[in-house]
Design a protein around this nucleic acid. Structure first.
Lengths: 202, 202
DNA sequence: GTCTATATCCAGATAGAC
DNA sequence: GTCTATCTGGATATAGAC
């Protein structure tokens, strides 16, 4: 009886090369901007000819798609690795800080994950699923602080992403908005946790 | 004695054609995305051959630059045309609403003005001056409500642009975040207008 | 002012040899 | 798996005729 190996060395090697291609692609978008990515440059960086990349990826957008899912996975891992405080206000501050720092750490990645700026690219269903998961876990984390109002969650994402993108657009590498994360989280906390006398509807 | 006309019809015609080119460029970026703009398409749309555009603009980035300054001028006009309430909280709500509506009205324009997403494009000194003016007038308007803390202004721009870009990125054409403008402005107002007992520094 | 013709370059993608 | 050769199309930009 023939015994087949359980590890598929060919598949492993293929995955390793795919990873190498993606690493080169990340380097390039970090250096030249997300939209400036070209398969020629990717191939050159890893010592390949451009057509060879097509053995690993069906198209340029497939590369973007893999980067998109990789970026979302990184965010999920990052969020899962943090020891979250249980006190609600502290929790909000930490979430905001984690998201803003994640964005500032790699502007091109943030652009790919959170903005719609590549003309033809739309994430595949599988990759999009990861983005949904990011959002759902964020929602769940806020729920542990007692925040379950969907509108409050939307307000929260606007506030936090606004800090990150203002920092990136107006002072990349600086900390003017990064330094406001704590104040912003407190402002939000005061808003959602403070019981006020009901006012007239707007 | 020869009398020269005071109106230069040639210059007027040239300016009219420049405006026509820009209008076509706006149409195209609205349809296909800001980054997808090509001079071929612009020329085709107005019944010209691509080289002819170079009589009106030095380069493609010069077209982007003209669009950038035009967009900022539109925002300045829009802001100048509004009859601002004097009551601070109402003022904040109106400013936020005006900015978000301006952004949603033309996503490509908002991308050009407020994000850094075109790899090679940087606004000229003159155009950048307009962007600075937009910011300074915003700062001045908040100052009329008694808000002069620079950090508060940064927090404000993060909050308001965050609403606009979350709307555009996640639900273009919808109103999930647009509908939060009033609540967001109130949250900010409560934050900056409420005197609290001083807390320890963070 | 607008054109034709062209230069130059770059892009994504495929065919098919090895 | 990776290559060479090539297709096809697109881009910005310039030269020079009209």
């Amino acid at each position: 009886m023939v015994v087949y190996p359980t590890r598929d060395r060919r598949t492993e090697r293929r995955e390793a090369t795919r990873a190498e291609i993606l690493e080169a692609a990340w380097d390039l978008v970090r250096e030249q901007g997300l939209a400036a990515l070209s398969l020629r440059d990717v191939a050159a960086r890893i010592g390949m000819r451009p057509p060879s990349l097509y053995w690993y990826f069906d198209s340029k957008n497939a590369v973007y798609d893999a980067m998109f899912s990789q970026g979302n996975r990184e965010l999920l891992e990052r969020m899962a690795s943090i020891d979250w405080p249980s006190e609600p206000r502290a929790l909000l501050r930490e979430i905001a800080r984690a998201f803003v720092e994640f964005s500032l750490a790699d502007p091109a990645r943030a652009q790919l994950l959170f903005q719609r700026t590549i003309p033809d690219f739309e994430p595949s269903a599988e990759s999009y699923e990861l983005a949904v998961q990011v959002l759902e876990e964020g929602r769940a984390r806020l729920a542990t602080a007692g925040l379950t109002d969907p509108a409050h969650f939307d307000l929260w994402t606007a506030l936090v992403s606004g800090l990150a993108f203002q920092q990136l657009a107006n002072e990349p590498g600086g900390d003017r908005w990064l330094g406001l994360v704590g104040e912003a989280a407190d402002m939000f906390a005061n808003h959602v946790f403070t019981k006020r006398s009901p006012r007239r509807k707007r």
